[in-house]
Simulated scan of single mutants.
Amino acid sequence: MTLAPYVAILGRGQGRARSLTQDEAFAAMQIILRGDAAPEALGALLMLLRMKGEVAAEIAGFTAAARASLPAWQGPAPAVDWPSYAAGRTRGQPWFLAAARLVAQAGYPVLLHGWNSHQATGASVRAALGDVGITQVDWTDASAALARDGIAYVPLEQMQPRLMDLLRLRDVFGLRSCINTVLRMLNPASASVALQGVFHPSYRELQRDAALLLSQPTLRVLKGGGGEFEHHPAKDITLHGLTQGAIWEGTTGAPLTGHQRLSETTSTLSQVWHGEQADDFAAAIITSTAALALSAVGAAKPEALAQDLWQSRHRSAAA
């Protein structure tokens, strides 16, 4: 099998080209992940999709094939899938890691996965994991880490190296491709709640509609800090997603006022988490993001719970 038939579908010309069906997208991604695709055909496919604009069926088919390529998950599914694949050029500290830690301390296991090691050290997601007590683990150890700690981070290149190769094609093309969206949709351990950040608002509905095709029970998609699921507490932002398999829409609320940028905080994640430096804005980023996640999992009074978890974070971590 080659990618030629799928390239032809997308590139036949005006009036004849069309989008891939979900089954066609699944088959094409299978060829790609087996390593059977000629590099010229792979580049053509990804860039034709970018020029056309991906549709939900294509993202769903690609995602389903990517999931099928992963080693089987061992153990109970996490409560929350929290992908982290944004470039992060417009974001400062990865405050969302502290929010994920709070959600885990509330008793909802969180699986983080991603690739952000190319960022500057001060804003690198991976460099900051230890600041809030999150362990980076291999895919085969992730289930045990969740059972032990309630939260774990798995690097993409360890989870599925071929997907990492596809993501790195951004350096070749000089452009993102649909692989960035597929990775956000991956939900490798079949968590019932998926949290996804986007940088461009138009992707919110695309990811929601693809998740609907994939029978994802609950989803929240946020235009967040640097493209991550991270809320600016002074902005009331529309959320798109699913609740119990049905299309859902809501807003984040805005607990603060002001115009400060996320990247303008002078504190570090470690300083704020350990109480070495008071930073009301950073704390509000963390607690408002945690509240959105807690609301998605169905926790009662999520805003108040997030505040309680923040105040008791060190006692909870020690326990």
Rank of each mutant, 00 (worst) to 15 (best):
Val125Lys: 05
Val125His: 09
Val125Gln: 00
Arg126Tyr: 00
Arg126Met: 04
Ala127Asn: 13
Ala127Pro: 04
Ala128Pro: 01
Ala128Gly: 05
Ala128Phe: 01
Ala128Asp: 04
Ala128Tyr: 01
Leu129Met: 00
Gly130Phe: 00
Gly130Met: 00
Asp131Met: 04
Val132Leu: 04
Val132Trp: 08
Val132Lys: 01
Val132Met: 09
Gly133Ala: 09
Gly133Met: 07
Gly133Phe: 05
Ile134Gln: 10
Ile134Glu: 12
Ile134Leu: 08
Thr135Asn: 13
Thr135Arg: 15
Thr135Cys: 13
Gln136Ile: 07
Gln136Val: 07
Gln136Ala: 13
Gln136His: 06
Val137Ser: 00
Val137Asp: 02
Asp138Ala: 14
Asp138Met: 12
Asp138Gln: 14
Asp138Pro: 06
Asp138Phe: 12
Trp139Gln: 11
Trp139Val: 00
Trp139Asn: 00
Trp139Ala: 02
Trp139Lys: 05
Thr140Phe: 02
Thr140Glu: 11
Thr140Pro: 06
Thr140Arg: 12
Thr140Cys: 06
Asp141Ile: 02
Asp141Glu: 14
Asp141Ala: 12
Asp141Thr: 05
Ala142Ser: 07
Ala142Gln: 10
Ser143Pro: 02
Ala144Leu: 14
Ala144Tyr: 13
Ala144Ile: 12
Ala145Asn: 11
Ala145Pro: 05
Ala145Gln: 12
Leu146Ala: 08
Leu146Lys: 02
Ala147Phe: 05
Ala147Val: 09
Arg148Glu: 15
Arg148His: 13
Arg148Ser: 13
Arg148Trp: 09
Arg148Gly: 04
Asp149Asn: 11
Asp149Met: 02
Asp149Phe: 01
Asp149Thr: 01
Gly150Pro: 08
Gly150Met: 09
Ile151Asp: 07
Ile151Tyr: 12
Ala152Asn: 06
Ala152Met: 09
Ala152Ile: 03
Ala152Pro: 04
Ala152Arg: 04
Ala152Leu: 08
Tyr153Gln: 06
Tyr153Phe: 15
Tyr153Ile: 05
Val154Phe: 01
Val154Ala: 10
Val154Lys: 07
Pro155Met: 08
Pro155Gly: 00
Pro155Ile: 01
Leu156Phe: 10
Leu156Ser: 03
Leu156Gly: 01
Glu157Ala: 14
Glu157Trp: 15
Glu157Met: 15
Gln158Ala: 09
Met159Phe: 10
Met159Glu: 13
Gln160Ser: 14
Gln160Gly: 06
Gln160Phe: 03
Pro161Arg: 05
Pro161Gly: 03
Pro161Ser: 03
Arg162Glu: 13
Arg162Val: 14
Arg162Leu: 09
Arg162Thr: 15
Leu163Glu: 12
Met164Ile: 03
Met164Ser: 12
Met164Phe: 14
Asp165Cys: 08
Asp165Asn: 12
Leu166Asn: 11
Leu167Tyr: 14
Leu167Met: 15
Leu167Cys: 08
Leu167Trp: 12
Arg168Ile: 07
Leu169Ser: 03
Leu169Asp: 02
Leu169Ala: 05
Arg170Cys: 13
Arg170Pro: 02
Arg170Trp: 09
